[in-house]
């Protein structure tokens, strides 16, 4: 029981690593992740790939439509599409 207080599983480490990409990991979670990263090669590899993905997303500044914009587009398109399907 005490062990899990500080030592976490690989799965939990990956989960914290995911949360950290969005600045949603707490300070305590980051400490636990740091400890795991110090000795677990699998977590280190996952973390490295995950960080690279975050950096790539930031660098590319990709954009997309939000739900409302997409719905508006869909509605306008469906109206027009109906004309071609009759």
């Amino acid at each position: 029981m005490k062990k899990s207080f500080l030592f976490i599983s690989c799965e939990e480490a990956k989960h914290i690593c995911d949360k950290r990409q969005y600045d949603e990991a707490s300070g305590w979670e980051r400490i636990k992740l740091g400890l795991r990263l110090a000795w677990c090669r699998v977590t280190r590899s996952y973390s490295s790939k995950n960080n690279k993905l975050t950096q790539a997303m930031k660098k590319a500044e990709v954009n997309c439509l939000n739900q409302t914009e997409k719905q508006n587009l869909q509605n306008a398109f469906e109206q027009e599409l109906a004309k071609y399907q009759h």
């Binding site: 990956k14 989960h15 995911d18 949360k19 990409q21 790939k49 995950n50 690279k52 993905l53 790539a56």
Partner: peptide, 21 residues
């Protein structure tokens, strides 16, 4: 949500590693 995010990130990271990173 976090399970979905994890799966998406894993697939994307692998794909990006193969093709870009």
């Amino acid at each position: 949500l976090w399970v979905i995010i994890h799966r998406a990130r894993t697939t994307l990271a692998e794909c990006m590693e193969k093709n870009w990173l």
